[in-house]
Design a protein around this nucleic acid. Structure first.
Length: 827
RNA sequence: GCCGGGGUGGCGGAAUUGGUAGACGCAAGGGACUUAAAAUCCCUCGGAGGUUUCCUCUGUGCGGGUUCGAGUCCCGCCCCCGGCACCA
């Protein structure tokens, strides 16, 4: 009798065979079209979670599908192995970060293998090994030589919990992206990468990203935040100081009734010098600065400021205006000083009201134009009034005229500003790539010579969780010789942000053991760009923007000629349970291992792709997975019961029977299903509907099987259908498909067989269903040959009993006819 | 507040170009098999109603509109999710 579906045995068997036969090893081959599929490489936290399983399953289906379609597929995997959790484990449990990380990787690797993903394991990379991070250092030095990596003292984001500096992109609503602690501001000297140099290209490059989800592009665009405006200087009365401001609304300049400086503005101190209550003012500024440094939020009605005691001259009105210092102007954006136009800016208005400063209206809504005020303040473009020569102009006209005037008079100029700031990469932590720089008292900041790379992490260090990096306390590491004068020198002890590692790892996969360069340019030329990149959208303004930046930098180094690394990015949705993301604290975590043990990898993969399209949220359902398990069991049993169909003597026989309806239906369904699944995977990435159609097809085959078996040609169709079914199912549930492929007498590997094609003739596209409506409501339908003449279709439609009933003997006023689709009778 | 994306049965979701709303699966209910249960198989399954093998009306967040025909397009609202948030 039939054998039970033993997924444990089957899955292990095929994983071993694929590994032994190197089924997924990728090699450059100029004859074949290449296809590079990539998932965001995982952080080795200890265990694979359902989010990984979903991400990797999506890409595994695409990879296997592309292999079967004749592509030379590169589908690599590796580890984002540097980072805080390893160091925290060291502090808490006394285990070395390296040991912790390598142990986690070993475990997670075995989990991935059990899921049967089609990785080329020979290309595995691990960023915490010197073989990898040496090239971080190499890239850093090249950037340093070109002024793209530089040191700067500035106000930086400090996470008191992680005891390290964070990049702006890593501060989410004032909190640390990793630990959620309130971020503080510190003044420190740090290493930065000049991403702002590429701001404009990062923006224009979005044009090449038509296959990105819109929201990811929008998030990046907002993050880069380009705004066009004007720089304008204000002369301080009775001194030769000028205050530089930036405004996007130079058209409102006649309404600029005061100036506001940020608390951190370098001129604050000088302006208040010698003024009334100078001491009080200094104390006030200090108090406010402290609040800001602790990351305290300032609400709308908490706008506060002080009058500096000085005035400046509005260069357009030539009137004196007061200079204030206030907590609502940011130092980090623009020039740290603004011209305040309370009549046309909501924030300036709030401030002016609070301190009874003058408000002067200079813009009125254009006649007849619809407009809306923000809290009673007109902030839109309009028509100028009270603006001297500019009266009557539109805002747009005034902006260009006024900029011309500024430039002629040397008062300022046109200016473009970005919200994006340079990327701070220094981290005061141990478990990261050492920054290859040496400080010498005599020679200053010096590069570590290329021949001395990599600068490796010392292994004998103490992890105590005290402030400062463990590297600082390692004499072995810090003490060194200056490469220029050979004198006593000190190494940089900051390590790199781990986003540095992930900014170029997709290049490394192309030649993972290359020893002279970060990667071999010819190999990268063959494989890149990545044809399909899959990962969570939470990295839209972190990893995805950094990686685009690095790609352009590496291009400018001459190592690649691509502008964009990921022309097609698919943002997969979250995996949730009971309405929220899976997390330990909520106790709603489903462990992939448990599911694989209970149902097998094929079922887990099938289910996680079945219940929602890839880009949407996926709600885990303990009962839902049972449905997929039942489906695979039904397939298994069906094959066991019909194996005799595949016996040799069956093949070359002639059909002795006449037309069989079942036979035709199943054959049609087979070709329709092949077409549907091909489109769903290859064009739409709708893996859930692909699975639905496979299930539908199987249900029909199963139902028709007894009848098909009664005729020879029926048996032939049944055999074809069963083979097609295995091929269609194989990217989703590769183990069971491969096993059944073998047990139906095939010597070749299913994984390397070709994707089934469909015959347009056999899809029976020649038969169409004509829908008949009366006054737009469905009243009947019938089958008709494609391209039946219009008159015949109409008269057939009118002859239907049901249709006649609704026409109530009336003459149709009009008959809408859509070829091969529909007849709508209007009465 | 600004910028994105959504709202379809009890649930996850289908409907690809304006043309049969609810595919596929889950849950639920009924039945078969069984001493019994599990497993499996079959049937029903948006709502209301009726003369109940079938038929009618109604139905895709709400209100309008365009159209022979709207889940799909347009206008106005409501709600949910995500991102940014004094960016001058």
């Amino acid at each position: 009798m039939s054998e039970k579906y033993d997924f444990r045995k089957i899955e292990k068997k095929w994983q071993d065979i694929w590994e032994k036969e190197k089924s997924f090893k990728a090699a450059e081959d100029a004859e074949k079209p290449k296809y590079y599929t990539l998932e965001m490489y995982p952080y080795p936290s200890g265990r694979i979670h359902m989010g990984h399983v979903r991400n990797f399953s999506i890409l595994d289906v695409i990879s296997r599908y592309k292999i079967m379609n004749g592509y030379n597929v590169l589908h690599p995997i590796g580890w984002d192995a540097f980072g805080m959790p390893a160091e925290n484990a060291a502090i808490k449990e006394g285990i070395h970060p390296r040991e912790w990380t390598l142990g986690n990787i070993a475990h997670m690797k075995s989990q991935l293998k059990r899921l049967g993903f089609s990785y080329d394991w020979s290309r595995e990379i691990n960023t915490c090994l010197p073989e990898y991070y040496k090239w971080n250092q190499w890239i850093f030095l090249k950037m340093f030589e070109r002024g793209l990596a530089f040191r700067k003292k500035s106000s930086v984001n400090w996470c008191p919990e992680c005891q390290t500096v964070l990049a702006n992109e890593q501060v989410i609503s004032g909190k640390c992206w990793r630990c959620d602690a309130q971020v503080e501001q510190k003044h420190m000297e740090q290493w930065f990468l000049r991403i702002t140099k590429y701001a404009d290209e990062l923006l224009t490059g979005h044009k090449q990203l038509s296959k990105w989800p819109q929201n990811a592009v929008t998030m990046q665009r907002n993050w880069i935040g380009k705004s066009k405006g004007a720089q304008l200087f204000f002369k301080v009365s009775g001194s030769d100081i000028s205050i530089e401001t930036f405004t996007t609304r130079i058209d409102t300049v006649y309404g600029a009734t005061f100036l506001v400086l940020s608390l951190e503005h370098p001129l604050c101190s000088e302006l208040i010098k010698g003024s009334e209550n100078e001491g009080d003012k200094r104390r006030w500024i200090e108090k406010q600065r402290n609040r800001q440094r602790l990351g305290e939020e300032v609400l709308d009605d908490e706008k506060e400021g002080i009058f500096s005691g000085k005035t400046a001259v509005n260069p357009f009105t030539n009137e004196p205006i007061q200079i204030w210092i206030a907590n609502y102007v940011l130092m980090e954006y623009g020039t740290g000083a603004i011209m305040a136009v309370p009549a046309h800016d909501e924030r300036d208005f709030q401030f002016a009201e609070k301190y009874s400063l003058p408000v002067k209206e200079v813009i009125v809504p254009a006649e007849g134009a619809q407009h809306c005020d923000t809290n009673g303040v007109f902030t839109e473009y309009g028509k100028l009034v009270n603006s001297g020569n500019y009266d009557g102009m539109t805002s747009q006209q005034a902006i260009s005229e006024m900029i011309k005037y500024l430039q002629n008079k040397g008062l300022g100029k046109e200016m473009v500003l970005y919200r994006l700031r340079d990327w701070g990469i220094s981290r005061q932590r141990y478990w990261g790539t050492p920054i290859p720089i040496i400080y010498c008292k005599k020679c200053g900041i010096t590069k570590v010579p290329y021949k001395d790379l990599p600068v490796t992490l010392p292994s004998e260090v103490e992890f105590k969780g005290e402030e400062g990096s463990p590297l600082e306390r390692s004499d072995e590491f810090v003490k060194t010789k200056c490469p220029l004068c050979n004198g006593e020198a000190r190494r940089e002890t900051d390590t790199m942000d781990t986003f540095f590692d992930s900014s170029w790892y997709y290049f490394r996969y192309c030649s993972p053991s290359e020893e002279n360069f970060p990667f071999k340019p010819e190999k990268a030329k063959y494989w890149l760009p990545v044809d399909l990149y899959v990962g969570g959208v939470e990295h839209a303004i972190l990893h995805l923007i950094y990686a685009r930046f690095f790609c352009k930098v590496l291009r400018d180094f001459g190592l690649t000629d691509i502008d964009e690394p990921f022309p097609h990015y698919l943002a997969q949705g979250m995996v949730t349970k009971d309405g929220s993301a899976m997390s330990k604290s909520r106790g709603n975590v489903v462990d992939p291992d448990d599911m694989v043990n209970k149902y097998g990898a094929d079922t887990v993969r099938l289910f996680i792709l079945f219940a929602a399209p890839p880009e949407k949220e996926f709600a885990w359902d303990d009962k839902g997975i049972e449905g997929c398990y039942r489906f695979l069991n039904r397939v298994w049993i069906f094959f066991q019961e019909n194996l005799e169909i595949f016996e040799k003597h069956e093949t070359a026989q002639i059909d002795g029977h006449g037309f069989s309806e079942e036979k035709g239906n199943v054959e049609t369904k087979m070709h329709q299903t092949i077409k549907k699944v091909t489109g769903d995977i290859g064009d739409r990435y709708h893996l859930n509907t692909a699975i639905s159609s496979i299930m539908e097809f199987f249900n029909e085959v199963k139902k028709a099987a007894p009848q098909l078996k009664s005729s020879l040609s029926g048996r032939k169709i049944l055999k074809q259908s069963m083979e097609a079914l295995l091929k269609l199912l194989s990217p989703f549930a590769p183990h069971i498909s491969e096993e059944l492929w073998e047990s139906t007498g095939h010597d070749s590997r299913l994984v390397l067989s070709s994707w089934p094609g469909y015959e347009p003739d056999l899809i029976r596209e020649d038969i169409v269903t004509i829908v008949v409506q009366v006054n737009g409501k469905l009243r009947g339908k019938f089958e008709s040959e494609r391209n039946t003449p219009e008159e015949d279709v109409k008269s057939h439609a009118l002859s239907l009993e049901h249709v006649k009933k609704y026409m109530r003997n009336q003459e149709p006023k009009k008959i809408i006819y859509i070829k091969n689709k529909l007849v709508n009778i209007v009465i």
